[in-house]
Design a binder for these strands. Structure first.
Lengths: 159, 159
DNA sequence: ACTGAAAGTGTCTTTTG
DNA sequence: CAAAAGACACTTTCAGT
């Protein structure tokens, strides 16, 4: 991981705002909205990609359409030593595990998992988590309903 | 919310796989990869959007580039009655709150929050959470490091 | 539901200020 | 660092199967 200098101006922020809302907006439309030439926008977008400001363009898919109706969060206590992340890396390799966060205070991780249903979750815990060395305990929290789920970051305003 | 029938075939799954990985992939490129005419792909993509299988196209932005370096999860106990979601809705209105999940067992919510730093988090808890009626208590978990953070769902394979 | 053709439009390199 | 021009490629509609 290299240190990167970000230095974004208001035009960059506006581009990011548009792209966050709809990643398939084309250059020409962005240019029109911002009153600039398409080529200027293209250049900026490429730089934003190069500078790792824009990390990826992602299509958000309805989990229900893929029969992944159960969302859970699991706290995992591990015996990873500080700096080590063996358990974290092993968790990240499980496809159903969407997020793995190393959390303060508990020598542990918080992971976000999507499965078809509670049976799928039990299978995952038995077959995938169960095979990872170094997990001491788990505490599972089932999501009944999601009120909001976005990735949209707050983009600084004018001024 | 209306009940929707999803009935996806292997070609749809392949389109979703490509779009999940890069939402800016051209119709023409998808068509080439799947050996079909661009017009056929266009038609399918539009249907996937209409059927709410594809919910949105999103540019994933590096939180560090926007100076949002602190990620936290907060458990919130509320006195919302069953079926009610007053607190949940109020939480969802806070821009720094990216996710709000109604969780089982605790009469509560789990929220995911991004702020610039711990000062930003304290401000948010005081100024935003503090103004919501019906919050009984909170328990905050600070993320030290994120090992994985994706939204990519597992898309069923051939057969 | 897919193909192929055709018209319209956007992309992206190069050039220029 | 931004704008203009032009060649090429992609999008999108429509008729046909």
């Amino acid at each position: 991981m290299t240190k990167v200098e970000f230095s974004l101006d208001q035009i960059d922020y506006q581009i990011l705002r548009i792209m966050q809302a709809n990643a398939r907006t084309n250059n020409a439309d962005i240019a029109r909205e911002l009153g600039m030439a398409p080529s200027a926008i293209l250049e900026r977008v490429k730089k934003l990609e190069q500078k790792n400001v824009i990390l990826k363009y992602h299509a958000k898919i309805n989990p229900a359409a893929l029969d992944q109706k159960l969302l859970s969060f699991i706290f995992i206590k591990s015996n990873d030593i500080i700096g080590d992340q063996k358990v974290g890396v092993a968790l990240a390799e499980i496809p159903e595990v969407l997020e793995v966060h190393d959390i303060a205070g508990d020598d542990g991780y918080l992971i976000k998992v999507r499965t078809s249903d509670s049976t799928g979750l039990v299978d995952l815990m038995r077959n995938s988590l169960g095979k990872i060395e170094g997990i001491i305990s788990t505490r599972t929290t089932i999501v009944l309903q999601t009120v909001k789920e976005e990735q949209e970051l707050v983009i600084p305003n004018e001024k």
